Simulated scan of single mutants.
Amino acid sequence: MALDEHSTAHGIFRPSPDDMEGCYGGVLVSSLGEGEEAVALTGNKRDALEAIDQYYREVCGMPNLLDRVGADLRDAYYHLDCGYAVFTRSPVSGWEISPADPTTAGAVPVTWFRGAPAGPAPVPYARRDDPTLC
Rank of each mutant, 00 (worst) to 15 (best):
Leu3Lys: 04
Asp4Thr: 11
Glu5Thr: 09
His10Thr: 09
Gly11Ile: 01
Phe13Arg: 07
Phe13Thr: 05
Pro15Glu: 13
Asp19Lys: 10
Cys23His: 04
Gly26Arg: 15
Leu28Trp: 03
Leu28Ile: 03
Val29Ile: 07
Ser31Cys: 14
Gly33Trp: 12
Gly35Cys: 14
Glu36Met: 15
Lys45Asn: 09
Arg46Gly: 04
Ala48Phe: 08
Leu49Trp: 07
Glu50Ser: 10
Glu50Tyr: 09
Ala51Glu: 09
Ile52Trp: 06
Tyr56Cys: 13
Cys60Gln: 02
Gly70Phe: 02
Asp72Lys: 02
Asp75Gly: 09
Tyr78Arg: 04
Leu80Val: 07
Asp81Ala: 11
Cys82Glu: 10
Cys82Gln: 06
Gly83Glu: 08
Gly83Phe: 06
Tyr84Ser: 09
Tyr84His: 15
Val86His: 14
Val86Leu: 09
Val86Asn: 07
Phe87Trp: 04
Phe87Cys: 05
Thr88Asn: 08
Pro91Ser: 08
Pro91His: 07
Gly94Trp: 13
Trp95Leu: 06
Glu96His: 11
Ile97Ser: 09
Ser98Met: 12
Ala100Val: 12
Asp101Trp: 10
Ala105Asn: 11
Ala105Phe: 07
Val108Ser: 09
Pro109Glu: 15
Thr111Gly: 07
Phe113Val: 08
Gly119Thr: 00
Ala121Asn: 01
Tyr125Gln: 01
Ala126Asp: 06
Arg127Asp: 07
Leu133Trp: 02
